[in-house]
Design a protein around this nucleic acid. Structure first.
Ligand SMILES: Nc1nc2c(ncn2[C@H]2C[C@H](O)[C@@H](COP(=O)(O)OP(=O)(O)OP(=O)(O)O)O2)c(=O)[nH]1
Ligand SMILES: [Mg+2]
Ligand SMILES: [Mg+2]
Ligand SMILES: [Zn+2]
Length: 563
DNA sequence: GCCGTTTTCGGCCCGACTGTTTTCAGTCG
């Protein structure tokens, strides 16, 4: 699928044109097209073949032509033209905190800056500071930005970000705050988080921002005012605080939750209705008609409240009614857990007790198979002995324990256990564990086609902190999963969250069931199911889409229908 | 460059903080 590739090109065209001083709205148009393509749940190539390019929001005749040219020839003249005269990697310098297109252009024109090294030089030798509109303080900021610069925008897993947010909120509660909560991508449960956004109301804005900037883990203060502040914490992550009066909390929460694209769409609709939305409320002329609670902002526009996870301008605003998203409390079991039999830390009984305490009806023990030697994979004999223990514990604890395996998909697509072994199991989860840059589609399709395989785990193999995942034709895998009625997993391990929201939505749209699995190796990790539900909600999944919402009866029926 | 039952031309979200400014541009959320 070339969606992301083309999105990346348009995004870079946007940066390049902005740098060159092109009309701002043209730049905006390229960026919008880039975002829409990135979020698309259809292969752009399919849309192109069917002549529907301009039906994609933000794609008009101009951008459609460029997509067409690229898909036909593998080249885009506009891209080359936009990049003309801009050295490779030069625009990455825009990722420096405080460095925007205007400043970069100034340095490019007046000082001949062409690279990171050049920039460092003009920062140090004072020539940048002497330029019109510049000064020592601005240059100092850029110098600090240079110190933490990385060409790649670094985003962290929501699993990590939630923990940091909790710490910050605990600190803030030691100050004089009324209401406080996480907003931004964190509240939207996005898989990766660029920065941590916290909203609060307080009697004295200046004082609470001051308190915020005194956070013990603070490294640097980026900005500090009466209504907002930004800091960098020791781990290197940015935290933004926004403060508003109590009677604006709803509007501010709506604003600060975003996404930006969702906000822009909402504000445009408001404008068409003769209203104005800001973080302070919804206004009709001078009078404020909403703002205390978030739902009021939406109802002022005649819209239903929209779950934060859906707020990405992916069509949620145009929806007549909201889907009944899978609820965080609707999970009846975990379908991917490791025990001490392979590389997990806990016994079957400990896991079962925890499952019961979590209110689960069932749990699947899915230890690794024999090829996974590094992970203490089970051979057939140990699998059999494990089955005996499972039967015993199930009786003792009173939770249905499905006898499963996370069976390795070997390079050639064969599975690590014979069909005779798989047949005896209650549930079979298959997965690839070798990190490889070989295309894995054939192997996965073959695994999918084995009737004993119920679920494909962490299908793309991405690790948020480390790698994109192996080359894979996701459309083909989804197609195969649909035709063989194999479920695809949203692996809830914080560094995987795989399938992603976009992929999960594509799978669901193709009729594929989704399974949530914590992939827990200890009891604490079993809590990560919450992250997976977040991804599922971002994919607009409803209870019938998600195996884990099924009652035990229904789940077993689904499993038995498959063999 | 995109878009449209209020427009096929003339709009395109709205506000805070910083530094440099003598009235606001740049960057960011
Ligand atoms: N209306 C409006 N709101 C914005 C704009 N930029 C950001 N916001 C709002 C919506 C965002 O969700 C929220 C926080 O901004 P962030 O830059 O932190 O983005 P967000 O948290 O969504 O994603 P992130 O994971 O941090 O990259 O502020 C903007 O240009 N206009
Ligand atoms: Mg954010
Ligand atoms: Mg932010
Ligand atoms: Zn696993």
């Amino acid at each position: 699928m070339k969606n992301r590739e083309i999105a990346g090109m348009f995004s870079r065209i946007g940066d390049a044109l902005e740098f060159k001083g092109e009309m701002p709205f043209k730049v905006l148009a390229y960026r919008k097209a880039a975002r829409v393509l990135e979020d698309l749940t259809e292969d752009i190539e399919d849309i192109w073949k069917e002549g529907r390019l301009t039906s994609v929001p933000g794609v008009g005749s101009g951008i459609a032509k460029k997509i067409d040219e690229y898909l036909k020839t593998g080249k885009m003249r506009k891209y080359r033209e936009a990049m003309q005269g801009i050295p490779d990697g030069f625009l990455d310098l825009l990722n420096i905190q405080g460095m925007g297109p205007k400043t970069l252009r100034l340095a490019f024109d007046r000082l001949g800056v062409r690279s990171m090294e050049d920039l460092k030089r003009v920062v140090e030798d004072g020539s940048l500071a002497s330029l019109p509109g510049m000064g020592q303080k601005k240059v100092d900021n850029i110098r600090k930005g240079l110190n933490v610069f990385s060409a790649e925008e670094k985003r962290i897993s929501i699993g990590l970000a939630l923990e940091i947010a909790d710490e910050i909120i605990a600190w803030m509660k030691k100050g004089d705050v009324n209401r406080i909560m996480a907003a931004g991508s964190l509240r939207r449960m996005k898989e990766t988080i660029g920065d941590i956004d916290i909203l609060c109301t307080a009697p004295d804005g200046k004082a609470i921002v001051e308190h915020f900037t005194n956070f013990l883990g603070r490294e640097r203060i980026l900005a500090k005012g009466d209504t907002k502040g930004s800091i960098i914490i020791k781990e290197g992550y940015q935290v933004d605080l926004r403060v508003v009066p109590d009677n604006c909390f709803g509007a501010a929460l709506q604003y600060f939750t975003g996404s930006k694209a969702h906000n822009v769409k909402l504000r445009t609709i408001a404008r068409e209705k003769g209203l104005k939305i800001s973080e302070y409320g919804v206004f009709k002329g001078e009078t404020k008609i909403a703002g205390k609670e978030e739902e009021d902002v939406y109802s002022a526009l005649g819209l239903p409240w929209i779950p934060p996870e859906m707020r990405e301008d992916r069509g949620e605003i145009e929806l007549m009614e909201m889907p009944e998203l899978v609820d965080y409390s609707a999970i009846k079991g975990d379908l991917h857990v490791h025990s001490i039999y392979s590389d997990g830390r806990n016994s079957i009984k400990e896991i079962a007790l925890r499952a019961k305490a979590m209110g689960y009806e069932y749990i699947a023990i899915t230890d690794h198979s024999k090829s996974a030697r590094y992970a203490g994979g089970l051979d057939e004999d140990r699998l059999k002995r494990q089955a005996e223990e499972i039967a015993k514990v199930q009786e003792e604890v009173g939770v249905r324990i499905l006898r499963g395996s996370e069976v390795d998909i070997l390079r050639d697509g064969r599975l690590d256990f014979d069909d005779r072994v798989l047949e005896d199991l209650d549930i079979v989860v298959a997965a690839i564990h070798t990190s490889s840059n070989q295309d894995m589609t054939d192997a996965m399709v073959k695994a999918c086609s084995n009737p004993h395989v119920d679920i494909i785990a962490h299908p793309t193999g991405r690790l948020i902190s480390r790698r994109q995942g192996y080359p894979l034709d996701i459309s083909r895998l989804i197609e195969c999963a649909a035709s063989t009625k194999t479920a695809l997993e949203i692996n809830c391990y914080y560094d995987r969250l795989d399938l992603s929201d976009v992929n999960a939505r594509m799978a669901r749209d193709a009729g594929v069931k989704i399974s949530l699995g914590s992939d827990a190796h200890n009891l604490g990790m079993m809590n990560s199911m919450r992250l997976g539900v977040g991804v599922a909600r971002r994919a607009w999944l409803t209870p019938p889409d998600v195996l884990n919402t099924f009652s035990l009866d229904r789940l077993e029926k689904w499993l038995n229908e498959r063999v």
